[in-house]
């Protein structure tokens, strides 16, 4: 029971990180219908930005953990958003309206280029980092087993919930959100009605990249290490999460992220840690076979 509870806490933390990356996939897929294959690498870049940000904070003598976290978070979000904007502008916008596979190939190219860019500029070795947010408390103790929650886990979950709420508001209530939903439904019609489609899509990519930067920072702090290749697996799993929850759906992305986190952590805890990724993909296949639109997705209308 205690072991189960501890694993549950770990799973929710991991699931939050996946969920945040998944939002980026789901928003881009919803609006232009393409798999942004480079999103996992944008996440990795966000992680590197925050690593460098924390080192800078330490150099400048900012020792207060909350201040450093907020500063680094803003910095990483802002600069990673520039990556999101550039990728869309250079690699995807010229291909809009081209056939379906063209942007996917270009996205794979961007992914390879980003990984090698970071590898060249920062070196191939994993970079260790001790988190500023240390410690935690014992939630519950029985049979000689302590169920512990670290402050970092609380920060991660709270930040995810807050961002999720914020983005639901942005999509649901603001002018930008209305424009995004309009583009999602019918891009041509939206542009006829005066929506600046290019700007809306750029902003969507920037929002996705900023969220990926948050996830990257959390990942870097949680595992205490980052290298240029982490984006690949995390990206695939986050995309799996987005599909699992129903692609195009914001709550679905978080739900899918949590489920992938749960499956992965519990499989590793009770069966074997080698096959945890197999379990995550296996569940995805099962869900897609029995519910092809994902858990919260709307059924696609068949237009003839």
């Amino acid at each position: 029971m205690e072991y189960f509870l501890q694993q549950l806490i770990n799973a929710v933390t991991l699931g939050s990180i996946y969920g945040l990356i998944a939002i980026g996939y789901t928003m881009v897929y919803g609006i232009i219908g393409m798999i942004n294959f480079a999103h996992g690498d944008v996440f990795m870049i966000g992680g590197f930005m925050s690593l460098i940000g924390f080192l800078l904070c330490a150099m400048l003598g900012i020792s207060s953990a909350p201040l450093a976290v907020v500063l680094v978070l803003l910095l990483a979000m802002a600069f990673t958003a520039v990556f999101g904007w550039t990728i869309e502008r250079v690699a995807y916008r010229p291909l809009r309206g081209s056939f379906r596979l063209a942007p996917l190939i270009s996205a794979i190219g961007v992914s390879i280029a980003l990984q090698n860019y970071v590898q060249l500029a920062q070196g191939a070795r994993p970079k260790p980092h001790t988190s500023l947010v240390q410690g935690g408390f014992t939630l519950y103790s029985a049979n000689g087993f302590d169920v512990r929650v670290s402050w970092l886990q609380i920060v991660i979950v709270v930040l995810t919930v807050a961002l999720m709420a914020g983005f639901t508001l942005v999509i649901g209530r603001t002018a930008l959100g209305r424009q995004q939903r309009a583009c999602e439904q019918d891009m041509k019609m939206a542009s006829l009605l005066g929506v600046n489609v290019d700007r809306t899509i750029s902003l969507t990519f920037m929002m996705g990249a900023a969220l990926a930067a948050v996830a990257g920072m959390m990942f870097m702090m949680y595992y205490g290490v980052i290298d240029f290749f982490v984006g690949f697996l995390a990206g695939i799993k986050a995309f799996t999460a987005a599909v699992l929850g129903g692609i195009g759906s914001l709550p679905g992305a978080i739900l899918g992220g949590l489920l992938i986190g749960l499956i992965e952590v519990f499989w590793a805890a009770y069966f074997s840690s080698e096959y945890k990724d197999v379990a995550a993909f296996g569940v995805l296949v099962l869900v897609l076979i029995f519910r092809p639109t994902g858990l919260l997705g709307r059924p696609e209308l068949e237009k003839v």
């Binding site: 010229p94 291909l95 270009s106 190219g109 390879i112 280029a113 090698n116």
Partner: peptide, 21 residues
Amino acid sequence: GLYRMLVFGVAMVLIMVFKPR
């Protein structure tokens, strides 16, 4: 050397952008 894969990725993007078909 190390720049090979970087060039490879960039080339993939460029070919797609200029010759999407």
